[in-house]
Design a protein around this nucleic acid. Structure first.
Length: 421
DNA sequence: TCGAATCAG
DNA sequence: ATTTCTGATTCGA
């Protein structure tokens, strides 16, 4: 019988901040998305004040001031490193794990005898907290969907652990488990199910799989099977090759000039190149898009994209910038206040797969060396230490993403190490 | 085969 | 004035 555990960090981004700043303990804390746009992580104290997931910061600024809520810009370098540390712990507790997201990991627990699973999970939790400072919850079940459900239910328990190996226990919890909290049931499907008076996980478990398929496609059919303890999803311990790669961002301020747009998109192309090289992949086309803010619908709207082919698959930043610039040239129209742009690519291939002609072989090698040197400099001294001239002086640009309240990158930058005294 | 819809975190 | 970002999957035209 398959058995999975799901461990996830409580209010993960906020907990990371608390590890390095004990003053945040017991206080309401929120972490904001890019551009300090909206709340993407909240401590229980912040949730109690009524701050919703994804709520725009400007709507709650006053509340935060009144109630002493600490609002922080997101610090992904810190969160990524803390996530890595947690997985080091997990790998000592299970021979096989699947990193599902920055704060969630599935662990294979077939090797743990049923009667020991709760104790095993408690120890996992205690060790994770001791080694990383991050509090977690752990759910266990015979399928991934039930492990997710158990994890969610564990959040309301003082122990932070719930084992749903036993079908009677599953039934007890599912009887009043809200349908919208089931993994894979989003807003649209929740509405469809509620219209059929299906309010709780237990009701969905008892639905005919074919009927679920009719309502929610094959995804819904799988969910029904999984709620019944029939596992349809394996642990994916090796991450599947990524299929696409994108760099998209809202601007700190609206962009109205072509020069700014070109620099912004050149910056995204630069980042795209870094990502591709890190994964050892390449692409032979890029799609660039730009649009105005749909939230300012009294203004003239524009939403366009263009795909530009690259002669052969590459991850060379200069080639990506060249293609991206061609797209901006084709798309640009002034008179609009652009709020967001991005560069997207699909169909990634290993580099060097493409035919390489005798004549430009040397150019390829030279370009690869330049990119390698740039990556190394940026790795050593921080992102954007060296950038192509087309990107401009990023720190002065009006479109640069805002991070006005970012905490130090405690664990990944020597010059931002915490100081003890 | 491509875009839209859906979902997740 | 302010409303994340990235990636995957599925379906139907």
């Amino acid at each position: 019988m398959t058995a999975f555990a799901l461990s996830d960090g409580n209010s993960f981004y906020c907990s990371c901040e608390r590890v390095f700043d004990p003053k945040l303990e017991k206080r309401p804390v929120i972490v904001l998305s890019n551009n300090d746009g909206c709340a993407v992580a909240r401590t229980s104290e912040a949730k109690a004040l009524g701050i919703k997931m994804g709520q725009p910061y400007f709507q709650i600024k006053d509340l935060c001031r009144q109630e002493g809520v600490v609002a922080l810009s997101s610090n992904y370098a810190l969160y990524g490193d803390m996530s890595r540390r947690m997985n080091v712990v997990y790998n000592r507790f299970s021979p096989e794990t699947e990193v599902y997201s920055i704060d969630e990991t599935f662990l294979d627990v077939e090797h743990v005898p049923r009667k020991d699973r709760t104790a095993w999970a408690s120890e996992l939790r205690a060790t994770t907290c001791q080694w990383t400072g991050i509090p977690t919850c752990v759910g266990i079940g015979p399928t991934k969907t039930l492990a997710k459900l158990a994890n969610k239910a564990a959040k309301t328990l003082a122990t932070g652990v719930l084992d749903l190996t036993d079908p009677d226990e599953q039934a007890r919890v599912m009887a009043d488990f809200p349908i919208g909290d089931v993994w894979g049931i989003g807003r649209a499907n929740q509405a469809k199910l509620l219209a059929l008076d299906i309010q709780f996980a237990g009701q969905l478990r008892d639905m005919e799989p074919k009927k679920a398929r009719g309502i929610m496609t094959v995804v819904g059919e799988k969910i029904v099977h999984e709620l019944n303890g029939r596992s349809c999803m394996d642990l994916e311990s090796v991450a599947p090759q990524r299929q696409g790669c994108a760099v998209t961002r809202s601007f700190g301020q609206r962009v109205t000039s072509r020069i700014e747009m070109e620099q912004a998109v050149a910056g995204y192309a630069t980042r795209l190149g870094e990502k591709l090289r890190r994964h050892g992949l390449a692409t032979d086309y890029v799609t660039v898009f730009m649009h105005t803010s749909p939230f300012n619908d009294d203004e003239p709207q524009r939403n366009v994209s263009m795909t530009v082919d690259i002669p052969e698959a590459t991850n060379d930043t200069m080639q990506l910038i060249k293609a991206a610039r061609r797209a901006v040239e084709g798309l640009w129209k002034s008179g609009y206040r652009y709020s967001k742009a991005g560069i997207v690519t699909q169909d990634l291939v290993p580099p060097g797969l493409a035919q390489r002609s005798l004549f430009d072989g040397l150019d390829h090698d030279r370009a690869a060396k330049v990119m390698a040197a740039m990556d190394e400099a940026n790795r050593r001294w921080g992102r954007a230490t060296v950038v192509p001239a087309a990107v401009g002086i990023a720190s002065r640009s009006p479109f640069t993403t805002k991070f006005e309240m970012r905490s130090p990158r405690y664990t990944t930058r020597w010059d931002e190490l915490p100081v003890c005294r």
